[in-house]
Design a protein around this nucleic acid. Structure first.
Lengths: 297, 297
DNA sequence: AAACTGTTTTTTCACGATAAAAGACATTAA
DNA sequence: TTAATGTCTTTTATCGTGAAAAAACAGTTT
């Protein structure tokens, strides 16, 4: 087994959803751009759809014969990328405890435990190293630096520096920039979520990421934009890990976002600065509170 | 051929230099820490030194029999890490022209051209991607973003943000911090270099890096410290590429460094800010001037 | 002739295998 | 009894290989 066909399976599942809406499918290249895969993969998908009696396929004509059933879909877990699988396993280990700072990380052991090749684990660790949680010893093992208080403080220091600058850049953007429409849309989504916060509070984290990414993009600086990957990754796992007072925390955050948005729309740099600072401060506290106070110097 | 023994060869060469100075070598573990390799490698080195008649080796006694000759050394090029080899090849291609932004990067082609396996090239590209010069298309090729004016501006924007903050942190360090001694030593080296700038101007880039790294370390922030890798890498190749007015440029930079050092020692934050700003501004201009003004939007 | 489908080639992704290097354990010398 | 050496085991670095996926090419259809 040298490479799983998760790209095919994932695209197939997404392709099935298209069958609900139309009576016949578009051309192969069009399907390719729609699903974000190559024609080669599209043709495999079409071949299977034909086999399972979902469509009749003859050259250009691709007629939908029936609506897909639940069992037509590939199981969710077969559609994951290998690196997603490795990341999840790795983060589970890291957060599940017993992960003391200074601990060694063993590529071979990780690979065996997850059931993948060493190459994939190595590549994952190299990619992951930019998050600042692990470090490589030349010709030797990786060392876990740990999700410590120091880490959180260093991370938020940069975040605050970058976001204050991005927010200022955002507010200075011309009237006709399309970002203002994006911001309006996000504001509506925030209003909606605020109204139904009691039941939908767990949808906040996704909205949070979209909002902050929009702001960071105004910096027009690849290093600032890319750094948000670190923040997003940490917050993603942090949200999964720490569910304490999630509803209250998110309710506060939504309100802060709305104030932040209002400040941006006012284009008053002082107001923007204040609203941004206030929100980032509470985000930092949330993060710091979730870190188990350990044996740290 | 699955792995070159460059670690052994490099350590062997460095080991030879020890023979000049002493009549007998220390214990295996001691040699290991001295050369930064494991005992396994030390024993291979000792075995060869015995074979070639450099030492007499019997258990604890390792007597030097003769001084090493030039031909005892392994050739320089055999001591390079594979990733160094790949990086050099890649950068040569990148800087040698014909590297238009938007160009595709082909792992297989690169690997064949350099004469290494694809795995090593893949790992190199992943590591290299944090410099912001290339970007991966999922399941497909890498795209060269190019060493453009925009890149230089984004890079220097972050650099200035980080260094101003680090310099302020540096100046605020307590009297008894060991960094002040480090700074004194660097100041002496600068003075020395300034006096002999006519002949030794090409030694500046190494001094430059040590100086700025010392300052960045005062931030106590891993993201700031790590970001200096990006700057160092760019400046390293930039220096190789652009030799125009190298002497003059470096002479100016040494003077700026000395002013910067004086400001730090004064602990006057305004002076530090001004000296830092001045130096970073001229560093930015140097970098910008070296970028060929192309067909950029 | 523009856009599609059919076919072939190339590239990416991931694995197992193997030598180099590190590390662990056992033994011996001071 | 500490610290070395001798020996054995494990891990890392790198390659070649093969299937998945992309991309290029050639032939059709509208």
């Amino acid at each position: 087994m040298s490479k799983s066909n998760n790209v095919y399976k994932d695209a197939y599942n997404r392709g099935l959803r298209l069958l609900d809406e139309t009576k016949s499918l578009p051309s192969e290249p069009e399907l390719g751009t729609l699903l974000g895969v190559s024609r080669t993969t599209i043709r495999s998908i079409l071949a299977r759809m034909e086999e399972t009696g979902l469509i009749a396929w003859n050259k250009r004509s691709k007629t939908v014969l029936r609506v897909p059933r639940p069992d037509d879909f590939f199981p969710e877990e077969e559609t994951d990328t290998l690196s997603q699988i490795i990341e999840r396993s790795f983060m589970r280990r890291l957060l599940a405890g017993g992960a003391e700072p200074g601990m060694q990380i063993n590529e071979l052991e990780l690979a065996r435990e997850i059931g993948v090749g060493t190459t994939s684990v190595r590549e994952f660790l190299i990619r992951f190293s930019r998050f600042g949680l692990i470090e490589k010893r030349r010709n030797s093992h990786w060392v876990l630096k740990g999700f410590t208080r120091a880490f959180a403080l260093e991370l938020t220091e940069i975040r605050e520096m970058f976001e204050l600058r991005s927010a200022a850049a955002f507010a200075a953007l011309p009237e006709d920039s399309p970002v203002w429409a994006d911001l309006d849309r996000l504001e509506d989504e925030h209003r909606l979520l605020a109204r139904e916060i009691a039941t939908r509070f767990n949808e906040f984290s996704e909205l949070d990421e979209r909002f902050h990414r929009l702001i960071h993009r105004a910096s027009h600086n690849r290093f600032i934009v890319d750094f948000y990957d670190v923040i997003a990754m940490i917050f993603h796992y942090h949200y999964q890990w720490n569910k304490a007072q999630e509803r209250e925390r998110n309710e506060v955050a939504v309100a802060e976002h709305l104030a932040y948005i209002a400040a941006l729309k006012s284009r008053d740099l002082d107001k923007v600065d204040a609203a941004c600072r206030k929100h980032l401060k509470s985000a930092r506290n949330t993060l710091l509170n979730s870190i188990p106070e350990g044996h740290q110097p």
